[in-house]
């Protein structure tokens, strides 16, 4: 269970509050206007931003002061998810061992993760030799091997077209099915939220609202979500 306990994050004069819990295995979409603080909230959970007040806990463990790499969190960013000078196998391998001293078992795991996301046999390729969609798949393969219980997506598929994005979301859904991880994803698109999440938190006016069931929220949006959706 992820708990945001009286959390208040500030970044450059802008401030965001959140005070709610998310059950294990939930899939949450953070939706709202640009600059409302969706990415700020993810940065706070991932440990890039220390809270001004309150704390983030996971299963009762306080994460305050835990560095990003030691948190139970895997994160995909808007861009720069792969290191261009490393092969796909090395990029995925970083998720297993940051020192890249991979055993043959590890290499096996990496190869099968790449195969799982549809990149079988491309282990030795560099990211530059891949399409945008393939790069997203490789990043997801790393999420797969990291086996961290929380997955944060900060619009990693924003640069892809609608069909490819839907494909990636389905792949995320499948990965979550295998790892049982809890998902928090930032999105601008109600369809994306409806496609793979069961909960929505509207982020607006300096506040991330308590999560509500996705379909319900989209069918009967409150004033903030209604304004965002233009209804």
């Amino acid at each position: 269970m992820l708990t945001l306990d009286g959390l208040r994050l500030t970044q450059g004069g802008f401030s965001l509050t959140a005070d709610w819990t998310l059950p294990k295995g939930a899939r949450l979409a953070l939706i709202g206007p640009s600059g409302a603080g969706k990415s700020t909230l993810l940065a706070g959970i991932a440990g890039f931003l220390a809270p001004l007040h309150g704390r983030v806990t996971w299963d009762g463990t306080d994460l305050t002061g835990v560095p990003p790499g030691k948190r139970p969190v895997a994160m995909l960013f808007q861009d720069g998810n792969l290191l261009p000078h490393l092969t796909l196998a090395q990029n995925v391998g970083l998720g297993l061992r940051p020192d890249l001293r991979l055993t043959s078992d590890d290499r096996e795991t990496v190869s099968s993760a790449l195969a799982r996301v549809g990149l079988a046999g491309l282990d030795a390729r560099r990211p530059a030799a891949l399409s945008g969609g393939q790069q997203s798949r490789a990043a997801l393969a790393r999420v797969l091997v990291m086996r961290r219980p929380i997955l944060l997506l900060d619009e990693p598929f924003a640069a892809l077209g609608p069909a490819l994005r839907a494909e990636m979301l389905d792949l995320v859904s499948a990965v979550l099915g295998e790892t049982g991880a809890t998902l928090l994803m930032v999105t601008h698109e109600p369809e994306d939220a409806a496609r793979i999440t069961d909960l929505i938190s509207v982020v607006a006016s300096g506040r991330a609202e308590r999560p509500v069931p996705t379909q319900e929220a989209l069918d009967n949006p409150g004033p903030e979500l209604g304004a965002y959706l233009g209804r």
Partner: peptide, 12 residues
Amino acid sequence: TYGRLSDSLGLG
């Protein structure tokens, strides 16, 4: 460009 990614991977 890659600092946050490396942090989240525990690459130190």
